[in-house]
Design a protein around this nucleic acid. Structure first.
Length: 366
DNA sequence: GTGCCTTTGAAGGGG
DNA sequence: CCCCTTCAAAGGCAC
């Protein structure tokens, strides 16, 4: 129970050691990158050219091939493996993205406003969540509360993860500790669950991802929280996809196999908790879209990836902390859940691609 | 209609 | 322990 309040320090059995290591290792570089981030326009121009000329960068990169941004940004070490991935992937996508990126970044409002209040303002928003109970403390800048944020997506889905929103809530009484307390002595994944989902899966599907969080049967935290909707489930729970859904209410012709399939279909898909970068992306995507003319997620994600690396370690740490708490909450909500459960639910060709690339590599190295 | 693209990070499994 | 694979979000795009 006190784990959630324990912060990043003691009692954090979920904290990924890699994160700390990364921070330690990249600390100086991150600081450098932050310094260089003080010149956003320069960085943007750099970013732009890098995104456009990514593939060419392999040959022309003065410092790090394939990472044009590394040099001008202040020796931000992306890591060899990231380099390779970036290089290859962007080469694959550059034909399409190059133009779209350039078009988007060409927009004056994008170029000038790219950093004007992006990284830091979003971060300040994040700072609304108090590490312990500093809910009354507002971020240094004049960031409006979350719910007043103007850049909320048009679809009305809060950009932030539930935890983020939770921590950002002006109601500090709804601390994560309460969540865990409430849910800890609540039977998790009880047989009632399927019934609950069978009843609500349809409506849940209509609910925005995040909004639907608080109705989770094991997480009825909204009831005691003023200002919160009564019941919104965790966003990790998503109704079965239309493909998999077997029309739970159509019980007329139900073979045994169908019944089994139906039972499985009733089980909502429990999604992976979002990692730090995913939380960051979710937060910043709308901003990037607003600032640039881009809409393609692939292009936006490239920008966000750059921005992510431009964040100071303190800024990243907040997202890591959020992600850590998300994982912690997720683990408490779904003790038996494994990321493996969702394996195969996405049909991907990455393996094939990887095999292809491996073949290519082997050809290269042979 | 479905999968791919792109990003980073987490997790699981195999060697 | 290291490496590889998959998935998490997102929306345009290709097929």
């Amino acid at each position: 129970m006190p784990q959630l309040d324990a912060g990043a320090g003691g009692g954090d059995d979920l904290g990924a050691p890699d994160e700390l290591l990364a921070f330690q290792d990249e600390g100086e570089e991150q600081d450098k990158s932050r310094d260089s981030a003080a010149g956003p326009e320069r960085d943007l121009a750099e970013l732009k050219s890098s995104l456009v000329n990514e593939s060419e960068g392999a040959a022309g990169g003065a410092g790090v091939p394939g990472v044009p941004g590394a040099g001008a940004r202040g020796e931000v070490e992306v890591g060899a493996e990231a380099l390779g991935r970036e290089h290859t992937s962007q080469r694959l996508f550059q034909d399409k993205l190059g133009e779209s990126l350039e078009d988007g970044l060409k927009a004056p409002e994008c170029a000038s406003g790219m950093y004007k209040d992006t990284v830091y303002s979003a971060f300040n928003l994040l700072m609304h969540y108090p590490p312990t109970s500093g809910a009354g403390q507002h971020p240094p800048s004049s960031q409006p509360p979350m719910h007043n944020k103007a850049s909320q997506p048009a679809h009305g889905v809060p950009q932030l993860s539930p935890l983020y929103e939770h921590f950002s809530s002006p109601h500090p009484t709804a601390a994560p500790a309460d969540i865990s307390q409430k849910q800890v002595h609540r039977p998790l994944q009880t047989p009632d669950l399927s019934g609950f989902y069978s009843l609500t899966s349809g409506s849940m599907g209509q609910l925005p991802h995040t909004v639907s969080w608080f109705t989770h049967p094991s997480l009825m935290l909204g009831s005691g929280v003023p200002g919160h909707p009564a019941a919104i489930p965790h966003p990790a729970i998503v109704p079965p996809s239309g493909k998999q859904e077997l029309q739970p209410y159509d019980r007329s012709l139900k073979t045994q196999a169908e019944a089994k399939a139906e039972k499985e279909a009733k089980k909502p898909t429990i999604k992976k908790p979002l990692n730090a970068f995913m939380l960051y992306m979710k937060e910043m995507r709308a901003k990037v879209i607003a600032e640039c003319t881009l809409k393609e997620s692939a292009a936006i994600n490239q920008i966000l990836g750059r921005r992510w690396h431009a964040l100071s370690r303190e800024e990243q740490a907040k997202y890591y902390e959020l992600a850590r708490k998300e994982r912690q909450l997720h683990m408490q909500l779904y003790p038996g859940w494994s990321a493996r459960d969702n394996y195969g639910k996405k049909k991907r060709r990455s393996r094939e691609k990887h095999q292809e690339s491996n073949t290519d590599n082997s050809l290269h190295y042979s």
